[in-house]
């Protein structure tokens, strides 16, 4: 399942993994069942090199300029940004809530860290999401194994460093099993300071 659909061009800088961009948008009044979630999420393109990433990314709307209830997802190629995907099933995510106005800059920093392999947790990272909501925006980074505390702590510490978060900022971790159970991405999270 590591079949690459795109390859780096001549002279380009290859990425450790290929990544795929996804976009989703939903009407907030409608319940987010897993079926309607899958119908609302669209694959928009894959990249294999740093240069391909910039060409693609430069044509995307900045997340902070999106309206309504929408998400950009950047996941390793072959991993669907869904709790149920084989690679995500035993995983979870770190959540960072952002006040309005910060999403574009923080999103860029989190994905550059991911593409550049700054997390140093082997194969653990699955992808990153920026979620545009009405009151606040939310960044998350998903990993494969929610009960591996060495990994989750290292991801948290790397996030603090690459996003330059104050040491007392609140970060929350939520397992995908819990998200499936309450059918919600961001409710009832375990808070960690």
């Amino acid at each position: 399942n590591r079949r690459r659909t795109v390859c780096p061009g001549a002279g380009e800088h290859p990425l450790q993994y290929n990544y795929t961009f996804w976009y989703s948008r939903r009407t907030p009044s409608r319940p987010a069942s897993s079926q309607s979630y899958e119908q609302n999420i669209r694959q928009i393109g894959s990249v294999a090199s740093v240069e391909q990433f910039w060409r693609f990314y430069s044509h995307l709307v900045r997340p902070g300029d999106l309206s309504g209830h929408s998400d950009f997802h950047l996941f390793k190629e072959g991993i669907k940004p869904m709790w149920e995907d084989e690679s995500n099933r035993s995983g979870g995510k770190w959540i960072i809530r952002l006040r309005k106005g910060l999403a574009s800059r923080f999103w860029e920093n989190i994905i550059l860290a991911m593409l550049g392999e700054q997390f140093m947790v082997g194969e653990e990272i699955c992808g990153a999401v920026v979620s545009i909501r009405f009151q606040e925006d939310i960044l998350s980074i998903w990993n494969r194994t929610s009960n591996d505390q060495t990994t989750t702590s290292r991801i948290r510490d790397t996030l603090r460093r690459v996003l330059n978060l104050p040491t007392n900022s609140i970060m929350e971790y939520k397992t995908h099993t819990d998200s499936l159970r309450d059918n919600s991405s961001f409710r009832n999270t375990k808070i960690s300071i």
């Binding site: 800088h13 990425l15 060409r55 430069s58 690459v162």
Partner: peptide, 21 residues
């Protein structure tokens, strides 16, 4: 094998290279 690591500064430099346009 070897892991391909890039820091933020390097990635931002690649943005302005002709290959990325």
């Amino acid at each position: 094998g070897t892991r391909i690591i890039y820091d933020r500064k390097f990635l931002l430099q690649c943005r302005t290279s002709p290959l990325a346009r």
